[in-house]
């Protein structure tokens, strides 16, 4: 399902981020620390799956020829997925999941706000819809970081460890490449490099409130946008795509 159309490729990146992150969140159903969190994590997961569908539906319309949202989710292999590595890392413990979520939400809110101003009206509409959800997501994950950071010794330790592990994957959110440059010039894509400062402010303020130490690692690991993933994505897709692979071409 390769496409050379820049807007389609861009929509797929954003759809992949949402699908893969939503998948990881959905793994928590029936496994959360208490019942209210089963529901809350499910809510956020549902928002991301919904967001993925909107991006994929738009991409499918642009590609045409019987391609649907499900074609993208269920029939592409690892190399064709272009999500951020941050989104695909295994869920880990509750601290890891919430730290990942917070680091992503702190990016996602300014990102969706900016996307709402895209010159592409469909992307702008998806962005506008996502802003409200993102605001709620960020409030929620920020609260959790403060609670866990400034909770018990154990929760502080787990949170700090998760943060340190995740840090090297955050730089990828702000990377640009030829596709982004081209679409930024047209006013279609969000210039993520410009969001970095806002992200750092949110993160620093939150870590301070949570009595957590900002990680010092400066190295960045990236590759997701080029289809170079961690080993974990293949296993995620094996589960996600099981039905469509075992029984191809059927309606469900």
């Amino acid at each position: 399902m390769k496409s050379d159309d820049p807007v389609t490729r861009y929509a797929l990146r954003l759809g992949d981020d949402a699908l893969i992150l939503g998948h990881r969140l959905s793994e928590w159903m029936s496994r959360a620390p208490f019942l209210e969190e089963d529901i809350a994590l499910g809510n956020v997961a549902l928002d991301f799956i919904g967001r993925a569908r909107l991006f994929y539906q738009y991409a499918a319309e642009r590609v045409g020829g019987g391609v649907t949202e499900d074609t993208f989710a269920y029939t592409r292999d690892v190399r064709e997925f272009t999500n951020l590595l941050l989104c695909e890392l295994p869920r880990g413990d509750f601290a890891f999941t919430l730290c990942r979520q917070f680091l992503y939400d702190a990016f996602s809110l300014p990102f969706t706000e900016a996307l709402a101003g895209s010159a592409d009206s469909r992307l702008a509409a998806i962005g506008a819809k996502a802003v409200k959800e993102s605001r709620y997501h960020l409030r929620r994950s920020r609260d959790w970081i403060v609670r866990l950071g400034d909770g018990t010794e154990e929760s502080h330790r787990r949170c700090q460890q998760a943060l340190d592990e995740l840090w090297i994957y955050t730089g990828e959110m702000f990377e640009t490449d030829q596709l982004i440059d081209e679409l930024v010039a047209l006013g279609v894509a969000v210039d993520t490099a410009e969001l970095r400062r806002c992200w750092i402010e949110t993160v620093s303020e939150t870590l301070r409130a949570a009595t957590l130490t900002p990680p010092t690692a400066t190295a960045d690991v990236s590759g997701g946008r080029r289809g170079i993933h961690t080993d974990d994505l293949g296993f995620l897709l094996a589960e996600l795509q099981f039905m469509q692979r075992a029984y191809p071409g059927l309606q469900w």
Binding site: L19, M29, S30, D38, L46, R53, L240, F242, M243
Partner: peptide, 22 residues
């Protein structure tokens, strides 16, 4: 939920399981 055969079925099932937790 993680193996639902389409994105629509996945979203519906997630909402359903969430209801049960509620």
């Amino acid at each position: 939920i993680t193996r639902a055969p389409s994105l629509e079925r996945k979203a519906i099932l997630m909402a359903k399981v969430q209801d049960e937790a509620g």
